[in-house]
């Protein structure tokens, strides 16, 4: 099965988080991304999808195949219309949590992937984009 290049999946439940992970893994395998980077990508997806679900009140994950000078990669965009993050620098710090997590999700996800970008608008939502190259 060759996955289509552009797909958006809902993140509204625990099950959706598991599904998002599975979909990301399938794409990564299709692109020939190695086992270690597959595992890292899937773990980052788990963190960001859970943030969408827990902190953002649900949202979506968009999947795109991107390429750069002949190199292919997978770009994932996590989007929600939740409360947003007032201080992104603070939120990115390891150990910072407003819930009862370890506060490692955002910082960890950034370290796990090749590219990481976060935008947030208080009262309007949050968007996190990551890329993993093959």
């Amino acid at each position: 099965m060759t996955p289509p290049g552009n797909e958006r999946v809902p993140i509204q439940s625990e099950d959706d988080i598991v599904r998002a992970r599975r979909i990301a893994r399938t794409y990564a395998q299709e692109l020939g991304i190695g086992l270690t980077n597959q595992t890292k990508l899937v773990t980052a997806v788990s963190e960001l999808a859970r943030n969408v679900y827990v902190h953002g009140g649900g949202g979506t994950m968009q999947i795109e195949i991107v390429s750069n000078r002949g190199n292919q990669g997978i770009r994932l965009t996590f989007e929600d219309h939740g409360p947003g993050i007032p201080d992104i620098n603070l939120a990115m710090q390891d150990g910072y949590t407003t819930g009862n997590g370890l506060g490692l999700g955002l910082g960890g996800a950034k370290r796990l992937v090749h590219e990481f970008e976060i935008e947030s608008w208080v009262g309007r939502g949050t968007r996190v984009t990551i890329v993993m190259w093959a």
């Binding site: 270690t36 773990t43 370290r111």
Partner: peptide, 13 residues
């Protein structure tokens, strides 16, 4: 497993 070990380290757990 090795890939899990690396992931855990980068997560910072």
């Amino acid at each position: 497993r090795p890939q899990i070990a690396q992931t855990i380290v980068q997560l910072g757990a």
